[in-house]
Design a protein around this nucleic acid. Sequence first.
DNA 1: TTGTAAGCGTTATCAA
DNA 2: TTGATAACGCTTACAA
Lengths: 347, 347
Amino acid sequence: MAGKVTIATVARHARVSRQTVSNVLNAPHIVRPETRQRVLEAITTLGYRANQAARQMRTGRSRLIAVRIEPTRDGINGSVLDRFLHGLTETAEAAGYRVMIYTAGDDDGEIATYEDLLSAYDLDAFVLTGTKHGDPRTAWLAHRAVPFVTFGRPWDDPDAHCWVDVDGAAGTEQATAHLVRAGHRRIGFIGWPRGSGVGDDRRSGWRRTLLASDLDPAGLDAETDDGITQGERTARELLARPAPPTALVCASDSLALGAVQAARDSRVDRDSGVDRAARDSGAHPHVPVIGFDDTPVAAAVGLTSVSQPLGEAAARCVDLLTDVLDGPQRTPRNLLLRPDLVLRHTA
Amino acid sequence: MAGKVTIATVARHARVSRQTVSNVLNAPHIVRPETRQRVLEAITTLGYRANQAARQMRTGRSRLIAVRIEPTRDGINGSVLDRFLHGLTETAEAAGYRVMIYTAGDDDGEIATYEDLLSAYDLDAFVLTGTKHGDPRTAWLAHRAVPFVTFGRPWDDPDAHCWVDVDGAAGTEQATAHLVRAGHRRIGFIGWPRGSGVGDDRRSGWRRTLLASDLDPAGLDAETDDGITQGERTARELLARPAPPTALVCASDSLALGAVQAARDSRVDRDSGVDRAARDSGAHPHVPVIGFDDTPVAAAVGLTSVSQPLGEAAARCVDLLTDVLDGPQRTPRNLLLRPDLVLRHTA
DNA sequence: TTGTAAGCGTTATCAA
DNA sequence: TTGATAACGCTTACAA
């Protein structure tokens, strides 16, 4: 601790005025190269770092962006937010921004937090994960002209604001097409109850791929809340139907994990329990199952799954934000990223 | 947006000086009650909020604390940090602090981040999750007298700094005692390679409980890196020994999840595959398995597990920090929390 | 190209 | 008990 190093310390050391130091930092091109060099050296030798609070008072900008974290209802899907958060923090750091996190009970609580964060900390922007039909939060932010980007499409109006999303339909399309190529004709889908943008999107990819292959999706899908046990129960029901699916695409890894259980048992049924060796060796279950999100658990248990490019999604969120914050005001832009199918044991 | 509301706006509105408003905020007792009342009313009607940057310039305090987030190597254990982070953010908010997150590649990178966060953002304190023998980060922070608390004991010297931890040995002790009470005499343990504080701690609880019950731990434990497949393989090895364990305590849910697979198969071995109905009904496997961390995945699949009070741990971290930050300088304190055994299907 | 002066919103000091 | 003044470290406007 050699005492506080301010812009004045640097100025003295480099034998220039404080203003020149500031110029080197904020407008290097207007400073003569040799002077600039001298100042830069002083900065490194002294280990000077601009004080954000002081800078912020003048500029009104904090170089801080905020993200909400949610309690993990399901540790499996929770890792999605986790990985997104990590990517966001890394990219933000590279762009000179820091990430602040906050919690909120409901939409009103979240909006109250916006007010606090904005007036007390001068936050530069918000990143929202997950959007719903008629989201009051985005409306509030847009109305105050607060820069923000959402990870997840605005399901009402695609051009309502900046967003980055992963094309869920393209993901289930890849999964379904993979199974079609493998010769399956009756491919089932286990998804969430209709009405959620994400869930409906993922279902649509399955459906359209079947139709494009002249296959009939009727009677091959089922809806349930997310969860392993829900997935297992629903898969069991699906497999017990008169003309059961011979393969399953699921809206999440949680559902898929449950479905894998059901599929294994269903195979044992047919094999009268003699196929244990094959199972032990990690061979394919007879009913292939594909999940969604490529969570670490999927990787661990060998579940084939659709992988979201979370790191890239996070990076693009930061890009969009810095475009708005640092560059000239542009029109809201958005980005739909393609997921990839990660083949493992289950399909 | 009715323009910026500063302390001056409030002062005008309440017909007092700026200083009086400041006093109402920071030293209410020296302001006459009626004046205080008038100022308070002005504050609420105007929706005034103190600007942190300005306050920080004077006080040198930012009311910001920082936590590092790590990429989830394993989605199962990742949820532990996740839940801790959530608790931390909530408690910090209640105490008037905000949480900033950062990433770091290694210890040197993390220390470089400390320097940046400290000099640029005037961070008030750090929360470190996980500590190791001879941790350079805690040494650096202690040397600069930067307030910090760790979630995890300093394994070298218990009084080196503030910390909160969960008594891992007490957790495995509960798990082991439960199995002893259930009549088991050969209880195995699957843990991490020796040398990690957390892993050794958890192993010691198993060991001492066995010894206390006049049971011999010899030949009943095995070491492996964390992971589901590692757990399955190791459990299989353990169960294939001459006098195999009849129950298993694991150092993590990941290991336990793998062990459950191995245990199921081992039962099928003995039962010649006829016991499928019992398995489907979720009955106990013949070899009970207990995990550690009570992750959401454990809850989903019915794995009995040791539950860490993460929310409380986080809250206590904030308490310790605010003690140091707001109160008079006290001696470093620490806290060892008791985990609980959550009984489910597997034991 | 460089230096001077002012001000951002707050709190600490000190006088009234 | 209250109020005026200075200062925190920085950047913008303007003068040299």
